[in-house]
Structure formats: C-alpha cells, structure tokens
Amino acid sequence: MNVKISFRDVVKTYPLKDDTFTALDHVSLDIADREFVTVVGPSGCGKSTLMSMAAGLVEPTSGEVLVDGSPVDGPGPDRGVIFQQYALFPWLTVRKNVEFGLKLMDLPAEERRRRAQRAIELVGLADFADALPKMLSGGMKQRCAIARAYAVDPQVLLMDEPFGALDALTRVQLQDQLLDTWSKDQRTVMFITHDVDEAVYLASRVIVMAARPGRLHKVVDVDLPYPRTEEMRLSPEFGRIRNEVWHAVYHQAPAVPAA
C-alpha cells in the first residue's frame, strides 16, 4: 500500500495577543494511494487547516506534509481542491470555469475543449455549459466546481465540506456520483464533512478529530465493500459504524490541558 499523503507530526499554531493558539497539535496521518478518507470533527478542530496543508495553501508551523514522499511546496494541479463556498469565478461561464485550469496546462485548444466537455458532461451540466454561475442552483454550482477540479485530472481530490450547503436529495446524488467516478479513476480523496452519515457512506476510513487543541481523536475503519449502495445505509453494519463515529465525534472527553 503506497502512501500518497503523509502528515508527519504536524503542528499549526496561530499567534494570539499574548500567547499562541494551537490549531493542530502533533497530527500524524497517512493516506494511502487511491484511498477515500473522510474527516469529521467538531467545528474549529482544524479539519480545513489540515486539508489546506495538503493543498499547499497553508504551511505547518512544525512537522511536515508529504505528497508522494516529497514535502508539499505550494499548491499544484496534481491536487484538486473543492471548496465549501464553490469558489467559481462568477464572471466566467461554466465552460470557461472548467477550462480555467486546463488553460494553464498549455494543452492544444482542441484537447482542452474535449476535456472540459467531458468533465461538464460527467457532472451533468452539459445544458448549462454557457451559463454564468449566477444562473445556477447551489447544487449545480458545486457540480461545476467538481467538474473544474476533475478537468485537470488531479491524482488527489481535497474536498472541504463540498456538499454541506445542499439539500438532502442533491447531496445523495452527488455522493453516489462522486463514488462512481472515484471507483473508475481511483483518485486519492480526502473529504471533510460534518455529516456522520456521509462520512461513513463514502469512506474506507473515517478520521475523527477533536478540538482544543485540534488533534486526531480516532480512526474508524469502514469495512463495507464498494460499490456502496443505498441499501447499505440501512444495514446493521452501517448503523454500528455510524454509531461508533457518532460517539467519537459527539462524546469526546475534554482535552487534557496542555502543559
């Protein structure tokens, strides 16, 4: 099992008025190549911070983050990021948004168009390819953001509560779609969510974090086979795992005060 992303003894502190705030406290975690992990934990426990480090948007205060064995040095198109707030360029159409990353890759125009079209079709936005983001619903915006990330064909997908703002139905559809493409392309996915059900349904491992200071709390293996189906959500095994994760998230012992 090849390690794709490796957090090694990562600490992140932010300076406060008189002392420092510890956002992440000695986090070590390996994510295997082609693994699908989800990260859950109370608000403020450092989930986004952890992911931003893998993305290269935030640097650790100490420790290191490795991707493919070498330290992360800034963001790169090998790691696609999907932000909670969609982050579409509002002045560009869906197609232009999806082509944004492709344009930076020096592809021939024809190849660029082909790949953008494929990504747009994959997320079911073909009819809206020339629409501006303001004309899209929340779910469509998120699908556009996903298409934009897919188009550059990253090996790693980093997703920060991507379905958080969506209604239950759209959310389930996008979950299944995500699993579907993941099982085809076998990317490595790190997926943050606050929805325990979603965390268990998607992942082969659920990383539970704790707050104050932000740290790893528990890792729960999800021994359910892929492809995941809607019936599985109702199975006793799913229920058991969900309870375990639920308990780990919502009944955390208070942190030992740091010395």
């Binding site: 963001p75 932000f83 982050a87 360029f89 944004f100 990353g101």
Partner: peptide, 11 residues
C-alpha cells in the same frame, strides 16, 4: 477563496 481556487489550479 477565488485566489486560492486559481492557485490550486496552478495559476
């Protein structure tokens, strides 16, 4: 986030 979105796409 828009700036970050561009950065992660390699801009």
């Amino acid at each position: 986030t828009l700036i970050n979105a561009a950065r992660v796409l390699g801009a």
